[in-house]
Design a protein around this nucleic acid. Sequence first.
DNA 1: GAAAAGACTTAATGTAGATTAAGAAATCAG
DNA 2: CTGATTTCTTAATCTACATTAAGTCTTTTC
Lengths: 192, 192
Amino acid sequence: MTFNLILANVEKHISLNESERKFFCSLLKEKKFSKKDLVLSEGQTCRNISFVNSGILRAFFNYDGKESTIMFAMKDWWVTDINCFIKHQPAMLNIVALEKTEVLQLTKENMDKLLHEFPKFEKFFRIIFQNAYIREQLRTIQNLSLPAAERYDNFCTKYERIANMITQKQIASYLGITPEFLSVIRAKKTKS
Amino acid sequence: MTFNLILANVEKHISLNESERKFFCSLLKEKKFSKKDLVLSEGQTCRNISFVNSGILRAFFNYDGKESTIMFAMKDWWVTDINCFIKHQPAMLNIVALEKTEVLQLTKENMDKLLHEFPKFEKFFRIIFQNAYIREQLRTIQNLSLPAAERYDNFCTKYERIANMITQKQIASYLGITPEFLSVIRAKKTKS
DNA sequence: GAAAAGACTTAATGTAGATTAAGAAATCAG
DNA sequence: CTGATTTCTTAATCTACATTAAGTCTTTTC
């Protein structure tokens, strides 16, 4: 596996010299998952934040059998159960590979080590979490104010790259509706 | 107005010397709002992130007349339209004072200046945004998976300090339901 | 301190979206 | 390749929550 993608991801926000690059990469752990493999399962303590090098992950919450998708993580995205990762609590979320997926994982301990050794990474994570906050605040706004059909349109825009690689069941669980109702929404859209 | 509260808020996460304190405080602008005053209105460019020194603010989204409350900000909380603040776009949110409220505001320009002058503040904002992300990811989980009555219970726990200082109309708009339906939920709860 | 405006409740009726069910199409496992 | 499992669709019925409306209570305003 190559570190090119993750280094580019970091260097979009902060510049690194060779020793910083090396140290950062030395803290990462490569992992490969097959379709349906679990990257994280609920109850387990979430030690890692994962960077998707290739493939797709889905983070979802399971409330007695009903799944709610919290996010899809594509190539070049970071994903974790943030509450569990930061506060060392049992995970609420499951994270599953939707296809063959390669990730680079950073443990909380290694993140702390990195921030201690090279404080400039504070800026990087400040920006990563700032962007995550922007994303989630926008989603809250839309979840509260828009009907399902419009949330579906927004979803297709936001996840354009993968919208036709994932099942409608999974999209429905992201929108907070049933697959049957999504099917109705799509049927109406085709007609008009 | 005193800077004690905001300095304590910062020094919970990073330690400051006297010159850092002074510089930080010099970048802040005090503002006082009366009940119903707007701290931010939609469309306007959001230049500030606000720290609540006393009082209560409400951030809401207006979708042709229907209001969705995104958050309440109590004493010792930070609040802004984060998308607009970071990306210099027109605000989607309105922020209004629910009572006499004193805030300390930091403009994006001053935040950048602060981060440039004293990079240790990167850590502070990393933690602030990290916590905001945790809060919003939890809310997304709950919005998608829980019925209104349970979301109301969670609300009362989370906003215990202010739950009986704000109207039910405002609580309902946070939960994504009508005040009439919240009234029904509460009536059922009293009976049982 | 009176009039007006807004908040809260209750109830009847309406609707977005859920549930159940069943068949067709696609995908998966051996 | 083939049977089994999962996905998608359509439709009937059901339910959580919305809307409308009307009355009471509280707060605001001047």
